[in-house]
Design a protein around this nucleic acid. Structure first.
Length: 313
DNA sequence: CGAGGCTCTCCTTTCCTGGC
DNA sequence: GCCAGGAAAGGAGAGCCTCG
């Protein structure tokens, strides 16, 4: 099912043509969303404002001031710039072109441009990771992004309360192929291996080349769940398991040693592994409860991508 | 129709590294 | 060996959705 079109911007792009979507995304280079909004005909402008209100609780007043959540640049971009209604269907945003739309912030420091944050791609479903025969290629949660990501970057500005004033930097289509894709598949395999070997509580971004597993949740104890494999297998077996699955020996060896160290410090984040604060919940969930996590492109990898593929500034 | 679950995104803490 | 700044990683608020 295609996205609901709010209005036609057919002179600007063709929803089935990735390159036209990229060009249209790049139109925003050096501009803000406000300019895209101003370029709309009055009738469409009204539709866009109404949609922003409906989908994002964002009130854009006639004088250009803004009232609403500030972290909704992505949603506003979809609505205003592409004329599409957001939905929460698992398929890619720009399905006809096979592209997933992501809007992400950049910052500049002494060493140059970098990504402000990791980029989250989709939630990890622990129970699904146990199904045998489930392959990387079948994991839609992540393939929708790996099959083509229309990545739009903007200059992050702390304390900016009006998303319409944020300046876009550039846009690119990212579709990992060849070596890059294989490397990402290994990261994915590593994550599956952690869950299958009873180490879901050890998942982290630190073992990743590109694809990490940072925590993602509503905060507090509700983020925890019993992991599907209750008892971790021992470390020699864990290495073997990883390698048999296709993880590089170096990564498997490093991670397993690190697991061993961290396992000595339950309840200590980073150097150990996190636990629910409520002891009763911890007891109910069993010995190694796992936090809700997502698949993400790590900050450092995203930074590399941005530096390599997007025009220097 | 209300409680709790889910997911979006931003915020805070911890850790690492490079310069002295 | 210490300090500061920046990066990595964990933590969390809020709104929407789902299900009883």
């Amino acid at each position: 099912m295609a996205r609901e079109k709010l209005f036609e911007r057919s002179s600007n792009f063709n929803l089935t043509d990735p390159q036209s979507l990229l060009r249209w995304a790049q139109w925003l280079k050096g501009k803000s969303l406000r300019e895209s909004l101003d370029a709309l005909q009055p009738a469409n402008r009204r539709i866009a404002l109404e949609a922003a209100e409906r989908f994002a609780k964002a009130e854009i007043r006639a004088d250009g001031s803004f009232k609403g959540p500030k972290g909704i640049l992505g949603v506003l971009t979809e609505i205003i710039h592409f004329g599409l209604a957001p939905d929460n269907i698992a398929a890619a945003d720009l399905k006809e072109a096979g592209l997933e739309l992501k809007v992400t912030g950049l910052v500049k420091n002494s060493k140059g441009v970098r990504a402000k944050e990791r980029l989250s791609l989709g939630m990890i479903d622990y129970s699904k990771c146990l199904k045998s025969g489930k392959s990387f290629e079948d994991d839609l949660e992540i393939q929708k992004s790996l099959n083509g990501l229309l990545l739009m970057t903007y200059w992050y500005k702390a304390r900016e309360t009006n998303p319409l004033d944020l300046i876009f930097h550039d846009a690119m289509i990212w579709k990992p192929e060849g070596k890059e894709r294989i490397r990402i598949r290994q990261d994915w395999t590593f994550i599956q291996g952690c869950i299958q070997s009873g180490h879901a509580h050890m998942l982290s971004e630190r073992y990743a080349y590109a694809l990490g597993a940072p925590p993602k949740g509503a905060g507090k104890d509700t983020d925890f769940q019993a992991q599907p494999v209750r008892q971790p297998i021992d470390y020699p077996q864990t290495i073997k398991h990883f390698v048999a699955m296709g993880v590089e020996e170096e990564q498997a060896d490093y991670a397993t040693k690190d697991f061993k160290e961290r396992s000595k410090r339950p309840g200590q984040s980073v150097k150990g592994y996190v636990l629910p604060k409520d002891p009763a919940l911890a007891k109910r969930l069993g010995p190694f409860p796992a936090r809700r996590r997502c698949y993400s492109l790590t900050n450092s990898y995203l930074t590399k991508l941005v530096r390599a593929n997007i025009t220097k500034d």
